[in-house]
Design a protein around this nucleic acid. Sequence first.
DNA 1: AACCAATTACGAAAAATTTCGTAATAAACT
DNA 2: AGTTTATTACGAAATTTTTCGTAATTGGTT
Lengths: 126, 126
Amino acid sequence: MIPQPTEKELDILQVLWAKGPQTVREINDQLQSEKEIGYTTTLKLLQIMHDKGLVSRELNGKTHIYKSIVSESATQQKMLDKVVDKVFKGSAMNLVMQALGNSKSSDKELDEIRAYIDQLKNDKND
Amino acid sequence: MIPQPTEKELDILQVLWAKGPQTVREINDQLQSEKEIGYTTTLKLLQIMHDKGLVSRELNGKTHIYKSIVSESATQQKMLDKVVDKVFKGSAMNLVMQALGNSKSSDKELDEIRAYIDQLKNDKND
DNA sequence: AACCAATTACGAAAAATTTCGTAATAAACT
DNA sequence: AGTTTATTACGAAATTTTTCGTAATTGGTT
């Protein structure tokens, strides 16, 4: 079983999900724009993630090109499950309500969610 | 600023939210039912949480009665914000969709959410 | 007042995560 | 081929979180 990424590992996965496979240098450059972080720190994290099976890598000349193995949506789901379990007493509905309540969502977005709900209800009654 | 609780601290907050103010022994007993944990471990966590300002305590004879200072919903919101930021690219709507999609929610629950959305839309147009 | 049982205080070990320095390696360039 | 430059490997320090052992304290009991 692939373990859940830690917080800093998630930062890296975000970069990989957003921009696709990249070198350590490229990934580090992007993290830099957020916060000071040493090159070897990023490298080490990627090596650890490789050991864990979170990313794969491919040799190109002498540099490795890292690629996320875990999908964004699967990771999102696991993170959600954890939050639901840890702070929403296991109720995903609770979470949805809270998220809707405090997000400055537009009418259009709310309509989208309504439409999605209707679709879910239909799918179920087939 | 009160710091965010760590994972184990959240376990304790859950107990406090669910059953109200309690002694270390009572809290520890409840955590025990989930997983082996030493009494002094729970005590230490509560002392740390007290230092952080997450809980208050009141002396009753020689024992302390601990009480959560942070509200459940405020904590939920902060956890959500973090998850939204960390894995949903800042989009709460994304999170809601994903949560709805993978939760086995009943028609009744889905209707509740629809009603809630309608209410949100109304509130906005006042 | 001395003892007992339970609680708290304190410090530190253990574990997990994050960070980086240094050395080894490889490619690219004179 | 020798030098420079960038990357990787390795190990360990630093930090944060979790865990618990031991000693001190307190209140109740004999």
